[in-house]
Design a protein around this nucleic acid. Structure first.
Lengths: 191, 191
DNA sequence: GTCTATACATGGATAGAC
DNA sequence: GTCTATCCATGTATAGAC
């Protein structure tokens, strides 16, 4: 009763992959079925409609979101640094679901996708703000993260470049901002 | 020979509007024709194919891009501040074309859309870097801009909130970052 | 649980009248 | 320059066999 979900998960993987690589429009039932290695009918047994597929992605990210937040919290680098670094897509299951959701949310046909994204961002904002203690800085961090996701989703080739020194530079600059805002008379909350 | 383009422009407006409000998928020839108040046949006289519509958006933004850069250059606030502020969609023709392009670029069917975006971002980066004199900070500014565009395109309702005090806060934080990076021993290049 | 076959609607694009 | 009519391909979804 626990392993039989593999076919279902495979379909969901295929759906996300197509949405992310070729856009929502390309993610037809046919294309997803082929990518998942099942027939259209087989796919529709697991997901009765297109919307069910979207709901599947939402369920996934809702589950994975907690783990991600936990990972940020427990990072020795601190929330901000690890948050920025993990905003460049590296193809983790969470990344794949998150980017798929941003695509699906754009159509407006799936209000739940949009709401889920908003909920996730609100959670991240609270987390970052708690560490930096400054709403404006927290907002900048969130925006940089959104920008990184947007860029690595739109220009997958550029994601490699951003993974290296350039990303370190961004993290460094954000660190400077946090310290500048903490003020000279206040010791850093880091560590 | 100069005003007869109004119908054409109207069709392009309609196309952008639907792409931005309801997603690329909703922007069918039928829907665009209805929105523009012409028949499908009439639309296809001006734009022989879907791709021609996309090319129309690209042509538009290529033309409008120069004006936008000029506006940033001549802003009394400086490039960075005005750039950040104008990254929240206010429904200008440039905004509409830009957001439409980001949507169209995601499908991968229109490589030109992606390349145009990359070209525009490169131009903006050069402009910002020239003012702040620091590649990492320039990159942060670009990412914040991308994040703002992404957010105001995805959550139009949130764009209002971001237009007010929150946006000022972000501009202020970025200003702090620029100053922090300029270093204590270096006078500000502003003005 | 997965397949084939099929119904039905919609999308892109052409032809040709006005 | 704009319209109607139409063709063909594709997309979503259902029915029912295996």
């Amino acid at each position: 009763m626990t392993q039989k979900t593999s076919a279902r998960e495979g379909v969901l993987d295929a759906f996300e992959r197509i949405v992310n690589d070729r856009g929502e429009r390309a993610a037809t039932l046919d294309a997803v079925a082929v990518e998942a290695g099942v027939s259209k009918g087989g796919l529709l047994y697991h997901f009765g409609s297109k919307k069910d597929l979207v709901d599947g992605v939402i369920d996934r990210i809702t589950a994975a979101g907690s783990d991600y937040v936990e990972l940020l919290r427990s990072s020795p680098e601190g929330v901000v640094g690890s948050f920025i670094r993990t905003s460049v897509t590296t193809g983790t299951p969470f990344d794949n679901s998150y980017i798929a959701l941003t695509r699906l949310a754009q159509s407006g046909i799936y209000p739940d996708a949009r709401e889920t994204l908003a909920r996730i961002e609100a959670e991240w904002f609270a987390l970052v703000e708690a560490e930096v203690g400054d709403a404006a800085v927290a907002r900048v961090v969130l925006l940089v993260s959104d920008g990184l996701y947007y860029n690595s989703a739109l220009f997958p080739s550029a994601a490699d470049a951003a993974t290296g020194a350039a990303l370190d530079d961004v993290v460094g600059a954000i660190g400077d901002l946090v310290r500048a805002r903490s003020g000279p008379g206040r010791s850093t909350p880091v560590d």
